[in-house]
Design a protein around this nucleic acid. Structure first.
Length: 278
DNA sequence: AGTGCGACCTGATCGC
DNA sequence: TGCGATCAGGTCGCAC
């Protein structure tokens, strides 16, 4: 499931392949993923533009596109759970569930594929993302200095939700999903069901440091491929070999040997070691 | 206001 | 073997 490291791997792999390319043609096979625009409006907004930048905010991929009037617009792509954005030769067969194809000036194609159609592509004219609630209220980038122990403690100290839910809250910190939230809690030695307001300053500082450490490692490994995830060249990630708790229910904890447990918190399965996490 | 939870969607897997 | 139920999870929208 694409979280920050996976989206960063897509971004960094796509950037050299598509930056500077002209968008020659856009084909929409399924209008769901470009809502609320119609296919015609979506294609018209992108065709003849030049791809100028490939950036990322949290789990959002932000492709800068300059139209023929030199206006800088933004194409946002959110992969949600099963989305893939791959640049490949037009001669390669189209995968099942390919919903949008962007043909570039060099003949290659950017293909948006998503089995479950949760993913979205949205155009923001002039790059103004304020109309998108999720993007407009996104918390700080976890790998930047804006995300500090002091900031994190301020956001958590009065919260009554369980810490697992807070880690998944994109308005507090951007980019964590279910896999890395569980891994961060294990690394920090904090149980996922702890209520945020009961966390000490030291625990919040550890959580902050572990978020940075785990995400940075996963970025280096080019993400975690559990099932569907691939980068912009169709390659799998390597971080799945380093997971400590996610999807390891009943398997022995690598630190203490006791069984990893699983419970539902905030509607999501949470994996933890009841001995190593307090 | 803050919090919790179902809906969205389809494929894989499980149990009978 | 086959069929239905359940689960996976990021974000939105609604209910309390």
């Amino acid at each position: 499931m694409p979280e920050l490291p996976e989206v960063e791997a897509v971004r960094s792999s796509l950037e050299p392949l598509i930056c500077g390319q002209k968008i020659a043609k856009v084909t929409v096979h399924h209008e769901d993923v470009i809502a609320p625009l119609t296919s015609m409006a979506f294609c018209r907004a992108l065709e003849n533009s030049i791809i100028s930048t490939v950036a990322r905010r949290g789990k959002y991929l932000l492709v800068g596109v300059r139209d023929d009037a030199s206006r800088e617009n933004l194409l946002m792509v959110h992969l949600r759970m099963t989305g893939q954005l791959i640049c490949e030769g037009a001669e390669r067969p189209l995968k099942k569930h390919t919903h949008v194809v962007i043909t570039l000036g060099n003949g290659k194609e950017i293909r948006f594929t998503d089995v479950r159609r949760f993913g979205k592509m949205v155009i923001f004219p002039g790059g103004d993302v304020s109309s998108d609630h999720g993007l407009a209220t996104l918390g700080p980038e976890p790998l930047s200095d804006d995300f500090s122990p002091a900031y994190f403690y301020e956001r958590l100290k009065n919260k009554k939700v369980r810490v697992k839910a807070a880690l998944l809250d994109q308005g507090i910190v951007a980019g964590l999903g279910n896999i890395y939230a569980d891994e961060v809690l294990f690394a920090a030695g904090v149980l996922p069901m702890r209520v945020c307001s009961t966390l000490s300053k030291a625990e919040v500082k550890r959580l902050c440091q572990c978020i940075k450490k785990i995400l940075a490692e996963a970025v280096l490994h080019k993400g975690t491929t559990f099932r569907d995830y691939v980068d912009g060249e169709g390659k799998k990630g390597g971080h799945q070999d380093f997971l400590q708790v996610y999807q390891r229910e009943d398997a022995p904890c690598y630190v203490c040997g006791r069984s990893i447990q699983r419970v539902k918190i905030a509607g999501r399965s949470s994996h933890f070691c009841s001995h190593c996490q307090k």
